[in-house]
Amino acid sequence: MRFDVKVEVRPRAGIADPEGATVGKALRALGFEGVGDSTTVHVGKLIEFDLEAPDVPTARDRVDAMCHTLLTNPVIEDYSFEVIPADSGSGD
């Protein structure tokens, strides 16, 4: 099976995120209302790739191992990911 994988990496909760804080300030300075205080704004990264794997659990295990090994640094980052079968929902 082929999967579309999307890994979201974000600054770990409690770690200073100067980039997020600056973006939050800029949004408020531009007059966008309702944006939470600067501690709620975070800038992370999105890592996308195709993955060939026999089934969903195997694909998830592989992606989790990739996150641990290379894609994230647990001291400063948290992550979550989606593993979407590439041929699902072909009628949509």
Partner: peptide, 16 residues
């Protein structure tokens, strides 16, 4: 630090 030979990590400077 990335190799796990030292504790902690280095992050973006607070003043960007």
């Amino acid at each position: 630090t990335e190799a796990g030979l030292l504790p902690g990590a280095l992050h973006k400077n607070s003043g960007l």
